[in-house]
Write a protein that binds this DNA or RNA. Structure first.
Length: 871
RNA sequence: GCCGGUGUGGUGGAAUUGGCAGACGCGCCGGACUCAAAAUCCGGUGGGGGCAACUCCGUGUGGGUUCGACUCCCACCACCGGCACCA
């Protein structure tokens, strides 16, 4: 895109032509290097960060909104005197580049860099004030080298490790699939059913930081509530106990985990996951076990079978059957559970299906006084006893009759999962659930049959990807030495270019002989490289660190260790802005990475992002804009038709940033109209305005007419409103509304005397300054039209004068019994007592009050009078 | 199921955090300019009643607190988002 050479003395067309205006000023800003960051430890800093885009090819409306918001913040803070870091970059590794390679035969690198060039132009065309000297491109070796370096540091600390894990595998394409490539359990290309395949993969031990990541949530004061909630939920901490149930006839224990120790006496069977290590030992029918494994982890009907073995409940010595069940997860807790059908719906369903006994041990507190004897229910009449799915049951293990007393006919239709009073629980009967949990935990620990534990839902972060377009994992496998990290001096491990994209096989890097075969760094013997690449979330977990330094091939390690490095100055990020879709993974990983960096002694911080703004989606016709829905709006077209200022203004005005934005073509027209109107006013009056001048401090003492002082007051009020709206909560929509009000007032203003013109100039200039973060190009042009020197961004944000902004007269509302009945215009100096009198003296109020008794009169300063009357 | 969010005119959204509900924009209606249209400008615009001054109703529903509730409390309904066989 061409940039018009700046020619300050030449004014543009009289008609508002956004293309001309915008290219002129974008050229000027670039030429003057206005957006460049200068490291100056003496100035107060502000790090404004927006989530960097994936270079998919084109900027979409979500980006427009995100970056318009970020740019307002950055420009506003600069005008407030902050030294602002406002960088941008590219999340450049990832699957779409490989897909493009397969589809069009273009190399992922070529495709990616082409997209970056194009999108960078688009961003510049929006007038975004980025410092491109700090541009980060994650697919460049000078960036990903440090991914590898961090990985090695984590490996040294035991924070990176290998374990066997499952991947999605398409048997027909013979390849590993990313989660996004699996659609309804089928391969995205050939639609065959995807299966799970075991592979040895690399993991980062994020769970080591589970507690800290959770506790840290409460310190994230500048984060939205909902994001905090999502993170906490994701981490999913729960306190409970692990208890050993010994297996009858074997010298083994089944260790179970529960958070409901209070229901231990109600356990009537034990379930283990089909992939539990003990399953192989306990189950003789291997075929049935295999079949069950296929149903493992799938939502739907709970199914399983009796193993033929029994366990002893250590609380009451009861002998209860051991089942294998598909709904028991191996990844959580111990992979084995005690089943309490009376108080857990899943166990209830299972017990119901297989006619297992249900024993009530908790009753709701209100009901605890009723007779709770004989609450144990018998198995369903006519049942098979200790059964199982006929097709899954092991034929030669006939379970004995249940060891429970047959009781009354009470019918339970669902589990009672709430808390209450314990019954039928030995020495713990009569206790409240919470007390019982504590006592039972003690009991278990004293007896050595178990211990208190804390479990987390979230798992370690699997970073291995069997893909090409990512950071090579810097590890070498040697026949003699085993797993050997690539020495730091050999970094980066460069991604080879001689790889074909066939869509077949495992990791594409296996195909590059040159890459694959290497020497062992320890013994020099024959070795091969790891061919998996890293999850691209690794890149985004620390890219904001890299922005703290200029781009290029720097030695990040020594930069980080320099005492007063730029890192120390810029971090943490003061304001982070991006979509909620990253509320969990990206933001959690970034927090984790920073804590690791801290523990490596590289940074003295606990959290990376002080304030977080999650902007809403851009919606059209009731749905998120997407190609598949065909409801996308192309920013290019809008910029061509209306210009970037209009596009920015609309996306800021249409809704507060955190809410979803409903796209409206007419709304865009409205924003455009507003700018045209402002342009027209400035041009119409430019001759008179250019020769007017004022000193800010003298304005107060000018002899002003009523209408001139009204405009002056409105201007100060607008400065106040816009400033407060931006500062508090970033309510840009109301800030813009306030500016529209001011422009409306300016439009109807008719100056006559010299002072009137002075005030008009003051009002227009302040409008321009206040509008500048939102629509930066048009204001620069009009600033110049008024006879000022560019750039107006070197102008400080204005202050308002509370005295001038104050209304001369206050309009009070008069209510009778809370209903609006009349109004009263008063001046500031009038006392409450006088106000009360004036209100009561009003003819209308007198009529309404009549001869009713006045019980009370409430006077709220500057607001209203409420007269409370009786009958 | 659990967690979180939202509910205000025809429409996007305001309401200084308990004090004039509907700012500002869009749309619509009327008018000016024009041969005409577009653009622009001016006026009107929550609903009902009244010629009118006015008046009654009105912030998802039902209750409550209060002189006063879109705002606070309780119960419920609807929609959206996240997690989900997590024991």
């Amino acid at each position: 895109m061409d940039i018009i050479d700046f020619a300050p003395e030449v004014f543009l067309e009289e008609k508002y032509n956004p293309q001309q205006v915008e290219l002129k000023w974008q050229g000027y800003w670039t030429k003057k290097g206005l957006h460049k960051t200068v490291f100056d430890p003496l100035r107060k800093k502000f790090y404004c960060l927006e989530m960097f885009p994936y270079p998919s090819g084109e900027i979409h409306m979500g980006h427009v909104r995100n970056y318009a918001i970020g740019d307002v913040v950055a420009r506003y803070k600069r005008m407030r005197g902050y030294n602002v870091l406002h960088p941008m970059g590219w999340d450049a590794f990832g699957l779409p580049a490989e897909n493009a390679a397969m589809k069009h035969g273009v190399h992922p690198a070529e495709w990616t860099y082409k997209n970056i060039r194009y999108m960078k132009n688009q961003l510049n065309r929006m007038g975004l004030s980025y410092d491109w000297e700090r541009e980060v491109t994650t697919c460049s070796p000078e960036f990903y080298k440090w991914n590898q370096w961090f990985f090695i540091k984590m490996l040294e600390r035991g924070l990176a490790y290998r374990k066997i894990s499952f991947v999605n595998w398409c048997p027909s394409c013979v390849t590993v699939l990313a989660n996004e490539q699996v659609i309804d359990e089928r391969c995205w290309r050939c639609e065959s059913i995807v299966v799970q395949k075991e592979l040895e993969q690399w993991f980062l031990k994020i769970t080591d930081y589970a507690d800290e990541l959770l506790k840290g949530c409460d310190e994230l004061k500048g984060w939205p509530e909902r994001v905090i909630a999502m993170q906490k939920n994701w981490i999913g901490r729960s306190e409970g106990v692990e208890v050993n149930f010994s297996i009858v006839g074997l010298d083994e224990n089944i260790r179970i985990f529960t958070t409901r120790q209070d229901t231990l006496f109600g356990a009537t069977f034990v379930c283990i996951a089909p992939v539990h290590p003990l399953a192989e030992k306990l189950v003789s029918d291997k075929k049935a076990l295999e079949e069950l494994k296929n149903r493992y982890g799938k939502m739907g009907e709970k199914t399983g079978f009796f193993t033929g073995f029994f366990a002893i409940n250590p609380m009451n010595g009861e002998k209860i059957p051991i089942y294998v069940a598909n709904f028991v997860l191996i990844e959580y807790g111990t992979g084995a559970i005690m089943s309490v059908p009376a108080h857990d719906q899943r166990d209830f369903d299972f017990a119901h299906k297989y006619d297992l006994p249900i024993r009530v041990v908790i009753v709701p507190e209100q009901q605890s006084s009723v007779n709770t004897l004989s609450l144990t229910l018998p198995p369903r009449g006519g049942g098979q006893g200790w059964g199982g799915d006929s097709e899954l049951r092991t034929p030669n293990t006939n379970p004995p009759s249940p060891p429970f007393t047959k009781g009354g006919q009470g019918g339970i239709t669902e589990a009672y999962e709430g808390e209450g009073i314990l019954v039928d629980s030995g020495q713990f009967s009569g206790l409240r659930s919470d007390v019982a949990r504590e006592r039972i935990s003690q009991f278990i620990e004293e007896r050595g049959i178990g211990k208190r534990v804390v479990n987390f839902k979230f798992r370690d972060w699997g970073i291995s990807r069997q893909r090409y377009w990512g950071t090579p994992i810097p590890v070498i496998y040697c026949e003699k030495c085993g797993v050997v990290p690539v020495p730091e001096k050999d970094l980066p491990v460069i991604l080879p270019e001689d790889v074909k994209f066939t869509g077949k096989g495992g990791s594409p890097l296996v195909e590059s002989e040159k890459f694959l075969n290497t020497d062992c760094p320890l013994c020099g013997g024959i070795a091969r490289r790891e061919t998996d690449t890293m999850d691209t979330f690794v890149d985004s977990s620390w890219y904001f660190i890299r922005y703290c330094f200029k781009k290029g091939d720097i030695d990040l390690d020594s930069e980080l260790r320099t005492p007063n490095s730029e890192l120390k100055y810029w971090m943490p990020v003061d304001q982070y802005i991006g979509g909620v879709e990253h509320a969990v993974l990206h933001l959690l990983y970034s927090r984790f990475f920073l804590k690791v960096m801290r523990d490596l002694g590289l940074i003295d911080l606990n959290e990376p992002f002080q304030n977080l703004l999650t902007q809403g989606m851009v919606i059209k016709d009731g749905a998120k804009m997407s190609k598949s829905k065909g409801n996308v709006v192309d920013p290019n077209h809008l910029i061509e038709k209306y210009g970037a200022d209009t596009l920015r203004l609309f996306s800021l005005f249409a809704a507060p940033p955190e809410k979803d934005l409903d796209w409206s073509d007419q709304g865009v027209e409205g924003a455009y109209r507003f700018l045209k109107r402002l342009w027209g006013i400035a041009y119409k009056n430019r001759d008179k305005l250019q020769v007017t001048s004022y000193e800010y401090n003298d304005i107060k003492s000018l002899p002003l007419t009523d209408y001139a002082s009204r405009l002056l007051r409105k201007t100060h009020q607008t400065i106040r409103r816009v400033t407060i709206d931006i500062e508090r909560e970033y309510h840009f929509n109301t800030a813009v509304a306030a500016l529209m009000e001011l422009v409306n007032e300016i439009a109807s203003y008719e100056p006559e005397k010299e002072e009137d013109w002075t005030i008009l100039r003051f009002a227009i200039e302040n409008t321009l300054i206040l509008l500048s973060p939102f629509a930066p190009h048009i204001v620069e042009e009009l600033w110049e039209v008024l006879g000022n020197k560019p750039s107006m961004f070197e102008h400080r944000w204005p202050d308002w004068d509370e005295e001038i902004a104050k209304e001369e007269k206050i309009e009070l509302v008069i209510q009778v019994n809370g209903k609006l009945r009349s109004r009263l215009l008063i001046s500031h100096s009038i006392s409450d007592v006088e106000i009360k009198e004036m209100a009561l003296q009003q003819g209308k109020i007198k009529d309404i009050v009549g001869n009713k008794t006045i019980k009370k009169v409430i006077v709220v300063k500057g607001k209203l009078v409420n007269i409370v009357v009786g009958d």
